[in-house]
């Protein structure tokens, strides 16, 4: 029965945090009274204090307060003795105090697992493929045969100054010039003389007209035209104008 009781007591493995007190109640130990072995140095891993001793059938029941100073499992009987100083015999060695370090109670970090990277490569191949594709597309654009535009007749060249003048001079001889055509005729004659006389080529139209009004060859026509087209009471007749325009036919 004693052995069974001890066994039950011992199987209640007491766990205590490091440095903090844990109370063990009603621990039955047969025989004479026991007491903690006095600590003479700092080697001991447990500090035991007897709180209360209660008489039992063949021994006593003890309430103990235990401080675990070192982490690990400690046998309780190693720290107790009889009052006469003898050791306790027959106490089950399995009565243990397990002291845990505070850090041991904290959750442990996940173990790092090394995952080997995937195989690096293929960039060079990809670059080569892209380069080939780019070259093919570029050459395709470059040498793509565009359809030739439908052949159209080139636009007729704009009439030259002489052609325009000739048309207007012919109309003038018929007396069928509109006011717009008269104005154009006057401007084209100025342009004709500006092109014909090298000394007038670089001049502005204003300077050219000013020079032409005193020019020995051009002035008779220019002044007559001015009078014909602009004077309120022109004395110039159609015959006079036709005669002056004769060189432009």
């Amino acid at each position: 029965m004693f052995a069974l009781l001890m066994s039950v007591q011992a199987q209640q493995k007491v766990e205590t945090p490091l440095g903090l007190p844990t109370t063990i109640t009603d621990l039955y130990i047969p025989g004479t009274k026991v007491e903690p072995i006095p600590r003479k140095d700092r080697e001991g891993s447990l500090v035991i204090r007897v709180i209360e001793i209660k008489p039992a059938a063949d021994g006593f029941r003890y309430d103990l307060e235990v401080y675990g100073l070192d982490p690990g499992e400690h046998i309780l009987s190693d720290y107790l003795q009889r009052e006469d100083g003898t050791s306790i015999n027959g106490l089950d060695h399995s009565a243990q105090i397990t002291t845990q370090h505070a850090l041991d109670s904290l959750p442990k970090p996940e173990e790092l697992t090394i995952i080997p990277p995937k195989k690096i490569g293929g960039y060079r191949l990809l670059s080569i493929i892209v380069g080939i594709l780019w070259t093919i597309i570029f050459l395709g654009i470059l040498f793509y045969k565009k359809r030739p535009p439908p052949t159209e007749a080139p636009p007729p060249p704009p009439p030259t100054l002489h052609e325009k003048l000739n048309t207007l001079v012919n109309a003038a001889s018929d007396g069928s010039l509109s006011k717009n055509q008269q104005a154009e005729l006057e401007r084209l004659i100025t342009g004709h003389w500006k092109q014909s006389a090298p000394e007038l080529a670089s001049l502005s139209p204003s300077q050219a007209i000013h020079q032409l009004r005193t020019h020995p060859e051009a002035s008779p026509l220019i002044l007559k035209l001015e009078e014909w087209l602009h004077a309120p009471n022109s004395s110039a007749s159609q015959a006079d104008i036709n005669q002056l325009l004769e060189p432009f036919r």
Partner: peptide, 13 residues
Amino acid sequence: IHVSEVFLKHVVD
């Protein structure tokens, strides 16, 4: 000062 029709055409042009 007289301004002829032809002169007006020059200006408009």
